[in-house]
C-alpha cells in the first residue's frame, strides 16, 4: 500500500510535468469554452420561443444528459489514451522498470500506482470540465428562462461516479496488459473500448432519448465497471515480476 502510494506520487508528478498534459488541457479547455459559450446561446434562443416547461423538460434533460455523459467520456478517454502506455513502454524498453521491481515494491503496487496516476488527473480534469459545462448551461440559459435547475440524478451518478469507475477499471486492465505484454496491446484495448463507448453514447443516446438520463443506463455503466473490475482482478493474479521482465524482451518486445 505504502509502495503503491510512492509509485502513484512519482508517476503523478511525471504526468503533471509532462508536455502532453498541457496539450490535453488546452484542447479540452478550448472545447469546453466553446461548449460553455455556444450551447447556452442556442438553448436561450430556443427557450425564448415561449415553449412550456413540460415540453422543454425532456429535451433539456436530454441535453444535460448528453453533456453529463459525453464530456467526462471524452476527457477521461483522451487523457487515458495519451498517458496510459508511452511512459510504461519507455520504462520497459530503457530499464527503469526492472530496477523498480528489484526494490521491495510489489508488482501489484506498481500496477495500481501507475493506473491511479493516470486515472486520477483524468478524473479531476473530467469532473471540472463536466461541472463547467453543466453549470453554465443551467446558470446562463436554463435557470434564467425556466426557473429550473436541470440535472437528472441518474445522469449525475453516471457522470461523476459510475462512468469514471468504468474508466478506472478499463485503465487497470489496459495497464496490466501493458505491463505483462507489449504496451501497444494495453493502449489498443483502452482505445478500442473508449471508441466503442463513445459511439454507443452518441448513436444510442441520440435515438433512445430517455436512455442517458435513466437509472438503467447508470446501472449499465456500473455493471460494465464491475465486469472490467473482475477481469482486472483475474488478470492481476497472473501479474508477476517475471512476466513484466520477460515481456520487456523476447517475444513481446
Amino acid at each position: 500500500m505504502k509502495g503503491m502510494l510512492v509509485v502513484l506520487r512519482n508517476d503523478l508528478g511525471d504526468t503533471l510535468h509532462s508536455k502532453s498534459l498541457l496539450i490535453v488541457v488546452s484542447i479540452i479547455g478550448a472545447l469546453i469554452v466553446a461548449a460553455a459559450v455556444g450551447v447556452p446561446i442556442a438553448l436561450k434562443g430556443w427557450l425564448a420561443d415561449g415553449i412550456s416547461w413540460d415540453e422543454a423538460k425532456p429535451l433539456l434533460e436530454l441535453c444535460i444528459g448528453l453533456a453529463a455523459n459525453y464530456v467526462p467520456l471524452i476527457v477521461l478517454f483522451s487523457c487515458m489514451a495519451t498517458w496510459a502506455t508511452d511512459p510504461i513502454a519507455k520504462e520497459k524498453a530503457k530499464g527503469p522498470i526492472e530496477s523498480l521491481l528489484a526494490t521491495p515494491l510489489t508488482a501489484r503496487g506498481v500496477w495500481i500506482g501507475k493506473s491511479l496516476a493516470i486515472f486520477l488527473p483524468a478524473y479531476i480534469i473530467g469532473l471540472m470540465a463536466t461541472l463547467i459545462v453543466i453549470l453554465t448551461m443551467n446558470l446562463a440559459a436554463i435557470l434564467p428562462t425556466t426557473g429550473h435547475f436541470v440535472l437528472p440524478l441518474a445522469a449525475a451518478f453516471t457522470s461523476f461516479l459510475f462512468l469514471p469507475l468504468f474508466m478506472l477499471a478499463l485503465v487497470m486492465v489496459g495497464i496490466i496488459f501493458s505491463l505483462i505484454t507489449n504496451p501497444v496491446i494495453g493502449q489498443t484495448i483502452i482505445i478500442f473500448v473508449g471508441v466503442v463507448l463513445m459511439q454507443v453514447v452518441g448513436q444510442v443516446g441520440g435515438r433512445i432519448l430517455w436512455l442517458l438520463t435513466s437509472w438503467d443506463y447508470a446501472l449499465y455503466n456500473l455493471a460494465g465497471a464491475a465486469l472490467l473490475g473482475i477481469i482486472a482482478f483475474y488478470l492481476s493474479r497472473s501479474l508477476t515480476k517475471e512476466k513484466i521482465i520477460l515481456s520487456s524482451k523476447g517475444r513481446w518486445a
Binding site: D14, K94, G95, P96, E98, S99, L100, A102
Partner: peptide
Amino acid sequence: GFVLESDGLYDN
C-alpha cells in the same frame, strides 16, 4: 542495494 545490467535511471 543493486545496480542492474541497465542502470535503470530516469533520463527525464
